[in-house]
């Protein structure tokens, strides 16, 4: 790992991100203060944040892949994917009402989620290994919420901010991955009854399992692995859509049913 920040700086940035996440305010991107900050520095802050949450009793449920499509990377001005952690306190049930009061500027995206039945470890994890280790897949919506002012950030900053992860919702219809063609799986995202985004899951690195393999390999780089029973969100199939209080969002997946949520 290419860590340039001192442990004091990592602690300071962890506290800054934690404050922004828990009290829902925006902060300038971290590279304003630390222009030399690397992606690995970002992960050091993210892992320090995870440790802090775990010490407070939050449970690690799994991980998310982010910035997995070319379009997404261009939209956000970065050039590689990223990962973030998912805890029990970030989970919301299907059909629930999500408050926007404790979010800064939330956006939603639809993703294929994987639940694993075997351990997966890098550095050479492949999509085929991911498919073999998958217990089932299910439809999901991720609510991303960059804590950076105006969604303006670079890769080290977004990684430190847990790759913009804030809430996630998993839908009710599990399927066996081998029964589906995850590459051509279609998804339609509707907001207040109107189609706002659509695409096929190939948008995610050609195949969502590729994104999970990438995630396992990044975990290895961080000295971590993906234990059996993990929940993994493989990355947004469509562009992220901004939501406000009063909005109703439904993601309809081919073969996987739908996921519906409201915002208040």
């Amino acid at each position: 790992m290419n860590i340039t920040l001192s442990s004091e700086a990592i602690t300071r940035l962890t506290e800054r991100v934690e404050g922004a996440q828990t009290r829902a305010y925006s902060i300038p991107k971290l590279t304003n203060e630390y222009p030399e900050m690397t992606a690995d520095d970002g992960y050091a802050v993210q892992l320090s944040l995870l440790k802090r949450f775990q010490e407070q009793g939050h449970k690690l449920i799994g991980w998310k892949a982010g910035l997995t499509s070319k379009a997404k990377m261009q939209q956000m001005g970065v050039n590689q994917p990223s990962i973030g952690f998912l805890t029990d306190l970030m989970f919301r049930p299907e059909n629930s009402v999500i408050t926007t009061e404790d979010l800064v500027h939330p956006k939603v995206e639809c993703e294929v989620a994987f639940v694993t039945k075997d351990d997966l470890t890098g550095p050479d994890c492949t999509a085929a290994q991911v498919m073999a280790a998958t217990d089932y897949v299910l439809p999901s919506i991720e609510i991303i919420d960059s804590r950076f002012a105006g969604f303006k950030f670079d890769l080290p900053s977004v990684i430190a901010d847990n790759s913009s992860s804030s809430r996630y919702v998993a839908g009710g219809r599990p399927r066996l991955a081998e029964d589906l063609d995850l590459r051509t799986l279609g998804v339609v995202l509707e907001k207040n009854g109107e189609i706002v985004e659509m695409g096929a899951a190939a948008e995610v690195m050609g195949h969502p399992a590729e994104a999970v393999a990438m995630l396992v390999n990044i975990l290895h780089h961080l000295g971590e692995s993906l234990p059996a029973g993990s929940f993994v969100m493989s990355g947004g199939i469509t562009a992220a859509v901004a939501v406000n209080a009063g909005d109703h969002v439904i993601a309809r997946f081919q073969e996987l049913g739908s996921v519906s949520i409201r915002f208040e």
Binding site: T184, L185, A202, Q254
Partner: peptide
């Protein structure tokens, strides 16, 4: 809801 994947010269071009 059927997805459509379009490849041009072996590379992903767009989906729908």
């Amino acid at each position: 809801l059927a997805g459509m994947v379009l490849e041009k010269n072996g590379e992903l071009y767009s989906t729908g």
